[in-house]
Nucleic acid binder design. Structure first.
Lengths: 276, 276
DNA sequence: CAGTGGTCTAGACCACCAA
DNA sequence: TGGTGGTCTAGACCACTGG
């Protein structure tokens, strides 16, 4: 059972991606769309909310929605002026953060050849910080190396909560998709993730595994994942070889009242209405 | 005029952040919240949608909403097992990507001392790729160095579209917040952003400006920003010194029908219902 | 099976933008 | 000032979760 608003969103999305609705053009009004699709206005609003969340359209109270310009996926050109040092040659594959995806899911969706294997794996008692994050007990620490198109691109250092450890240990060392395997085995769903992204220098182990020089730049993603119920599953430190992948994110100012934010700016320091 | 649903969201958020609603606990049902706040169910749904977008609560059809565990901002502990090479010592400041913020906005909100100055600035004709992204004509290329707590942390190489170039040229070289200055000057709002994040080695210019060794890791953020109308404003290549900042993102599987995604997984390759 | 969230309707009023 | 999106109501039915 597919929701009506999803179908409408699909239809509008196709129009945008196909170029029928070019960047900068205006969408029909909600009232007109409601008439055209034969639904209530609320349903149309749900549909366009999807597109807004995807960063395809922008909206402001009082003005028609506009189609936003979008870079062709994975080929965002070098923004750097000529002064920039020699960047990575080919446009790197990019991984969207709009939804939570495992490495395998992402690679498969992008049509890449990928693999991976466990390098090291052992149980140990949770440290204080880990216990706070994952719950106490005997956590499972796993070191994995993953490849893309035959090349090693990612070193994953993952700590699994005690309650999933047995299921993880039961997996083969060359398991393609841990996420899928755990779902098949015990119905586990990685539902929510929190990510911290920064850059680090390759350590000696990183360097050896990825085939780069020690100290060379790596893109690091520290991640904590939970189930639907909010139960922590794993906490991971993933390091990508520079140039192999990039993360992509789309953003807008303010949650919905886009204009308000601009006014807050004027007040200089002012008081912040969100404490986050 | 603050919307009712915002107030309800604020109230619930405070309960979560204060610990009154601990991670893993269930939220009251929509019906009960509607009664408690004296609003219709739809209004309650808007409120919890805000919290869901912030990653504070999760929801699934048929089950009560749950409060998700959240890492204390800016202090996500080292997820890496002991095998990891010596990471950055202090927890780095983290910048959320939930909303679009300028460096100045972010630094100010975090209570940091910050500054910046223009190193180089010149007009030149747009290249082909730039013209496609920003519109043609004479773009303005600016090299800025920005500091946090007195330390240089960020090299910004920005290309401004021709139509904003005059306003940017009119700014003082040590302008604190370009975003705010441009708003004050010509009412320009940076409304939407698209970001590509990866790691690169410091070039010689980067190294000199940031006070690091050539080849040392930098966190790179390539960004294209547009107005509310979707008109491109700037395109930038920002490079952060490793350890100075991290980007933080919260995620969930699937847009709303969280369970469906899990089922799709089972079908292995299967057909993908979203072409994105 | 009862309770819950997900979808949808058909109205209403308001704040805002552009002409 | 007219059209637009933002908010809100009071209902309805359905799909799903959990005991």
């Amino acid at each position: 059972m597919v929701a009506r608003y999803e179908l409408i969103a699909d239809d509008l999305r196709e129009g945008i991606l196909s170029g029928a609705r070019p960047a900068g053009s205006q969408l029909p009004s909600e009232a007109e769309l409601a008439g055209r699709y034969g639904v209530a206005r609320g349903t149309v609003r749900q549909a366009v909310a999807v597109l807004a969340a995807e960063g395809l359209v922008g909206s402001r109270q009082g003005a028609r929605r506009v189609v936003l310009p979008s870079t062709v996926p994975g080929t965002m050109p070098d923004a750097a002026p000529s002064a920039a040092p020699g960047g990575t040659p080919g446009a790197a594959r990019s991984q969207s953060f709009a939804e939570l995806h495992s490495f395998a899911q992402w690679a498969r969706a992008g049509g890449h050849r990928f693999g991976g294997r466990v390098i090291e794996q052992r149980r140990r008692r949770a440290g204080a910080a880990e216990a706070a994050r994952l719950g106490g007990g005997e956590v499972l620490e796993v070191l994995r190396l993953r490849t893309l198109e035959g090349e090693p691109v990612l070193v994953e250092r993952t700590v699994y909560a005690a309650w999933v450890a047995p299921a993880v240990e039961a997996l083969p060392a060359d398991c393609e998709s841990v996420t899928q395997a755990l779902y098949d085995a015990i119905g586990l769903v990685f539902a929510y993730g929190e990510h911290l992204i920064d850059a680090v220098a390759a350590g000696s182990q990183d360097a050896r595994l990825l085939g780069v020089r020690r100290g060379s730049p790596l893109l690091r993603q520290r991640r904590t994942t939970t189930t639907h119920e909010g139960r922590p599953v794993e906490s991971s430190d993933d390091r990508y070889r520079a140039g192999s992948v990039a993360f992509s994110i789309r953003n807008s100012i303010g949650a919905n009242p886009l204009a308000r934010q601009a006014l807050d700016l004027r007040s200089g320091r002012g008081e912040h209405m969100f404490d986050s």
